[in-house]
């Protein structure tokens, strides 16, 4: 991510309460992850100690401090999905992609993450690929779906 776009994001938010979180969210939205240099720049420009920037950046699961894969798989392990077999969904995806939650494969194809509740408990078990939600996920369908991603 280039310095100018980071500057633009910071200038837009400067002076607002809570601007640190908003700035990090926008950088992450644009860049998919938060490189160390970007955090240093945010610290310098918002005049927030780097330790506080790192604290916020590591406090939330949403913020990524390492590069992400091209496709993001989120598996809901919230309670409703848990009782409806989220573990089977997770096992299937782990088998098919060879990665565990929090990991990205070496080809940067998939990143896998468990999430707590996507708010569509009525469709559980739920998984989300690149923002698209799949309800009542069955292992065979998941395998078919994952084949579609490059």
């Amino acid at each position: 991510m280039d310095n100018d776009s980071i500057d633009q994001i910071i200038d837009k938010q400067r002076g607002k309460p809570g601007s640190l979180i908003q700035v990090l969210m926008e950088i992450q939205d644009k860049n998919q992850w938060l490189p160390r240099e970007a955090l240093e720049k945010v610290s310098e420009k918002l005049e927030v100690p780097l330790s506080r920037v790192l604290r916020i950046a590591t406090f939330y699961k949403t913020f990524k401090l390492i590069p992400e894969g091209r496709h993001k798989i989120h598996i809901c392990t919230g309670t409703a999905c848990h009782v409806r077999g989220a573990q089977r969904v997770l096992d299937t995806v782990q088998d098919l992609t060879g990665i565990k939650p929090g990991e990205t494969d070496p080809d940067l194809k998939f990143s896998l993450e468990t999430v707590n509740c996507l708010g569509c408990c009525t469709l559980g078990p739920v998984l989300e690929i690149d923002g698209k939600t799949f309800g009542k996920a069955a292992p065979a369908e998941i395998a078919d779906e994952l084949k579609k991603y490059e």
């Binding site: 509740c117 708010g119 009525t122």
Partner: peptide, 11 residues
């Protein structure tokens, strides 16, 4: 915020 897993009525 509705962070309680299994809660979706506020949304």
């Amino acid at each position: 915020h509705e962070g309680e897993p299994g809660a979706f009525m506020d949304r």
